[in-house]
């Protein structure tokens, strides 16, 4: 776990209120670059809310979320940036972004944070390949001179589009969807749709990939394939992964770092082994009333 040595995202004092309901309460954590960081917690713990804050879909009530590209020192620059009205800063070694100041599409376009959704959101009436082309909208838009060049058929755009198709093909091979490239996304079986959504997010060339319950509804074989895919994304591409997961076997097997939420508050933070043995986690997850029950459930989830 590289949260201390090489952080990519630093969340500080994140609070999100909906009317009287506090969905996330003063949450702070750091995600390390190249790590798979898991955000776990019982239903209604506020995990998806945290995701929505990070990806700009919600404006947090208070809190700061700093993301860096390259090796810029977060600690050294974050206060300077916070004092300016701007949302990003270019410094030596890279850039620093304050995600809470950016609208949702810019979080993806500029800060390079991609995400998937708990209830899959594909463009179901478009083909698998088209889904991946839409994900490369921004570079293609530039290549088409904001439509004008493309409209009169400049050759530069055609070339760039072929590159985009190559990128799409690469991720389709990786996610084993290449044979279905020309099928409508809505026709794919559930497991394939999950993988397609991940492939689509990866086509935006993210530095941080946020996955909302990627293994939900997958069978054990698909789940294992997903683990392999995520590891390869981290190792081969240096993309950091932040994921929400209910399936403990996935979390414990692939995560480098686990953050546990309960009722919007962080109750534990550490390596999978540390978290596993944290009594507060066991209490929150399993309910501490009945020891025998706890053991039984522990055995079931493979703790």
């Amino acid at each position: 776990m590289r949260a201390k040595s090489d952080p990519i995202l630093k969340v500080e004092n994140l609070t999100m209120r909906f009317g009287g309901l506090v969905a996330v309460n003063d949450l702070s954590f750091v995600a390390g670059r190249g790590d798979i960081t898991a955000l776990i917690g019982p239903n209604g713990a506020g995990k998806t809310t945290v995701f929505n804050c990070i990806t700009g879909f919600y404006k947090p009530t208070t809190g700061r979320m700093a993301l860096r590209h390259g090796n810029i020192d977060i600690e050294a620059h974050v206060e300077t940036l916070t004092d300016t009205p701007r949302d990003s800063l270019k410094g030596e070694g890279g850039s620093l972004f304050l995600l809470e100041r950016m609208p949702d599409f810019e979080v993806s376009a500029r800060a390079k944070v991609a995400r998937t959704f708990q209830n899959i959101r594909l463009f179901s009436g478009m083909t698998v390949l088209e889904n991946l082309m839409v994900a490369q909208h921004n570079p293609l838009m530039v290549a088409s001179n904001w439509t004008l060049g493309g409209l009169i058929g400049l050759p530069g755009f055609k070339k760039r589009e072929n590159e985009a198709i190559e990128t799409a093909k690469y991720w389709l091979e990786k996610t084993k969807l290449i044979d279905r490239a020309d099928d409508p996304a809505g026709d794919l079986p559930y497991g394939d749709q999950r993988r397609l959504e991940i492939a689509r997010a990866l086509c935006t060339d993210p530095v941080l990939l946020c996955l909302d319950e990627p293994a939900a509804g997958l069978n054990p074989k698909e789940s294992a394939e997903l683990n392999a895919l995520l590891r390869s994304v981290c190792k081969d591409h240096g993309t950091s992964v932040l994921l929400i997961e209910h399936d403990m076997s996935v979390v414990m097997e692939i995560s480098d770092h686990v953050v546990v939420l309960d009722y919007g508050t962080k109750i534990s933070d550490g390596t999978p082994d540390e978290v596993k043995s944290d009594p507060r986690v066991i209490a929150a997850y399993l309910g501490a009333e009945d020891e025998a029950e706890v053991e039984k459930i522990e055995a079931e989830v493979g703790l």
């Binding site: 959101r121 594909l122 909208h137 689509r200 997010a201």
Partner: peptide, 10 residues
């Protein structure tokens, strides 16, 4: 098809 997905793709 899906506006929210569009925003998540920048």
């Amino acid at each position: 098809e899906d506006e929210i997905a569009c925003r998540s793709l920048g």
